[in-house]
Simulated scan of single mutants.
Amino acid sequence: MQALRVLTGSWKMQTQKGEIWERWQQEKHQLKGVSFSVKAKDTTQLEDVILGIHNGKLSYAPRTSGDAESKRVYFTLVKQSATRFEFENLQHDFPQRIVYQFFGTDSLHAWIEGPINGSLQQQHYYYKRMQ
């Protein structure tokens, strides 16, 4: 968990449609994150995440925003290095894997991946630290 504190702070990715942000803060023995998009003056929360211990294992647990029925999906840490963290839940439809790869202290490449219609699909997110 200590190594993942590098995530703490605000991260921004510029897209053609606006900005995507992730904000992470330490709260007791876990990290809490929120992602949201900003288009012109409209801000929409996308999901909130708890990064902490679940059933004895370090887990990445997102919950989609705006859906009252949405429940957390737990992805367990399966691989880790000083700059890369991989979380996996092979029972989930999409994504099945979430990866965070850090480059220095101010760049982050995150991606999600899993099967869609029988082929591996990925969505990439390239963030810069804002604070």
Rank of each mutant, 00 (worst) to 15 (best):
S59K: 03
S107A: 14
Q101C: 11
H124K: 14
Q2M: 09
D106C: 02
G118Q: 13
H92Y: 03
Y125W: 10
D48Q: 06
W11E: 00
V49E: 06
N89S: 02
L108M: 07
Y60D: 07
G52R: 00
Q80F: 04
L51C: 02
T76C: 09
R97A: 06
E113A: 09
Q45L: 11
E86H: 06
R97L: 06
F94Q: 04
I50H: 05
S81V: 01
S59D: 10
F36E: 00
L120A: 09
Q26R: 15
M1C: 10
T76Y: 08
A68C: 08
Q101N: 12
E27R: 06
G104E: 10
Q2V: 08
Y125K: 09
L4C: 01
A40V: 08
G66E: 05
A82C: 06
D67Q: 12
D42L: 13
L108N: 06
T83L: 06
S35M: 05
F87T: 01
K39A: 11
G33S: 01
L108T: 02
K28N: 13
W111F: 15
P115Y: 13
T64Y: 07
L90F: 04
Y60A: 02
E22K: 14
S65K: 03
G18V: 12
M130L: 11
I112N: 07
S119G: 08
R63A: 00
E19N: 15
I98D: 08
I53T: 04
N117I: 07
V99K: 04
V6N: 09
S59E: 08
V78Y: 00
L120F: 05
